[in-house]
Design a protein around this nucleic acid. Sequence first.
DNA 1: CGCCGCACATAAAACGTTTTACCTCTGTAG
DNA 2: CTACAGAGGTAAAACGTTTTATGTGCGGCG
Lengths: 341, 341
Amino acid sequence: MAIRRGITIHDVARRAGVSTTTVSHALNEKGTISERTRERVKSVAADLGYQADALARGLRSSRMGVIGLVLRPLDALGSYAPSGVDYFLRFAGAAAGRALDLGLGLMQVGDLTKRPITPLAFSLDGYIVMDPMDDDPVIGLLQKYEMPFVTLGRDVRRPEANNWVASDDRRSVRTSLSHLHERGARSIAFVAGVDGNSWNRDGEEVYLGWCAEHGVAPRLLHIPESDGEAGGRRAARQLLEEGLPDGVHCMTGRHAAGLQAELREHGVTTPEHLLLVAGSDAEPSRAGTPPITGFDLNPERLAQATVNLLDATIRGEAPPARTLLGSRFIVRASTGGERGA
Amino acid sequence: MAIRRGITIHDVARRAGVSTTTVSHALNEKGTISERTRERVKSVAADLGYQADALARGLRSSRMGVIGLVLRPLDALGSYAPSGVDYFLRFAGAAAGRALDLGLGLMQVGDLTKRPITPLAFSLDGYIVMDPMDDDPVIGLLQKYEMPFVTLGRDVRRPEANNWVASDDRRSVRTSLSHLHERGARSIAFVAGVDGNSWNRDGEEVYLGWCAEHGVAPRLLHIPESDGEAGGRRAARQLLEEGLPDGVHCMTGRHAAGLQAELREHGVTTPEHLLLVAGSDAEPSRAGTPPITGFDLNPERLAQATVNLLDATIRGEAPPARTLLGSRFIVRASTGGERGA
DNA sequence: CGCCGCACATAAAACGTTTTACCTCTGTAG
DNA sequence: CTACAGAGGTAAAACGTTTTATGTGCGGCG
């Protein structure tokens, strides 16, 4: 790949009349060399537009200036650019932006436990793992190689971990259930995904608790995230068969959109016959008929916090932390809209 | 960084009882070695979980498996994670996803002509440059180093270039102006940004042409992209002072949102007193009072096409191409909504 | 004078690959 | 019997750094 950037440390050394060792030391503020020489070397280096080759430097194991991002739910999904799911894209984009502001590159990589892996994968400075699954092998790998990492969403199997940032999903689900109840729903069904991460686990747990508390029988459905709208439709048919609730909370926006569409085709409309909330806002749920009430998880804010935490961890200044950030509840027509039922 | 991945090519060589050369050849399908040895080496390598170190390999100048993404408008903006602009985030996220599907990593990097640069910057396999500016130094740099690249948006100074993908902005602006005209606007102002890219240039050109064609005096305002909503408000005050038009097209969503808010505070509402269109849909414009008509540039689709083109270019299979993709026009309340004026 | 320590600088090893040039067989043609 | 051509393999150089170990020369102290 004819990259031929030319100028190496040798060129600088020759031009400055010193050894390469001296150049390296001068530029990295190491070793013992006179101030005069150091300055001279620096100016020569600047003149020549010298910049150390990252690969060669990395070979001697220093910092690479790049962090990795693994989006576990997308690994499970099979496609890294799913349509109708903007949460991950926004998170990834925002994380890259924040990283850049900190002088770091960010690289999105696939499942580290499956070949082929991006070759650079194990040379990165640290990792963000989004929504790790139950006993996630990727986490195991990172621990084995002693690589710094941070998760977005709690790792359900490591309750003692304190290197995570998460949206306050328990609170969101409570908010949703209260909202549904307040607007008249008495029998509320809950559609969760199947990935074993805290997002699903916490949601279910809060739902079951809420049902117990209110003395109602829970109706908990599990639909694979990867089934998208089709999965939502399946859930709808199941509900139609077994008897309709008057409120539904779907953890994912695509399930919600599919469910709404299927019900509608059977003459069941929202919010008239049934109130509907999506746990995560997405294009298909916003564009539903009518638009579906949901939570904006604010991926930009989450990304910022996550990258900051990883950066601190890498430089060893890690005040390890567990950060919970609230989501924004957006009431739309599927639960009666802004004001009143 | 205690990465200590352990297993090197030497381990494999020792275990297989051959030289490192043989291992390298066996795994890379080079050299002349017997099928038997090749298989044995491969199986040993697999047993040991050997994976070649990307840095060491890159040092010998082969392919890195990573492409770079430069978002020029964000360089100009100063922040890589601006609030209220989701176009870039969505593009970046989707591009990373597509790259991953092709087995490539994607790294977002900052302005290549300004220090400090991510160290890896010049070792990447190729680049996507988004919305290059007029005589963009980043393009110059990439050309100088003979690095493969592709732009999103035409490079206005290189009309002969055929390595780009772009949204059909000329058509979008024409659509917008026709729409405004059709719904009754007779004096239409145009608010563009100041970045010297095809996005702004083409928009202005079409606007001026349209005015000439319809025999109306153009009113062209320039507001820095980085001023965001505040810039839109400034434009609004200028219009109030100099006399209100009955239609406005703002190239950016944030300008549109600011303009709308400011006008509203002066008793001028959309769509009653003035019809408003945003050239690029964004959170602030969608959330306007009322929601603002605009174009979804479909960054996901653009990203897909751009990454595909770069990938082909890198592997030399480049059927160099100029790809124009249409945007989706979304009519909202700021121009009277879905049906009729 | 002899030795130590200090300030400054450098040679050479190391990092883990790929690649180039060379070696040693074995069989075959002359 | 010699020469030559593969086939199969290896030693060593190269990539561009950083780091470790090793010199120098000089001033000061005993």
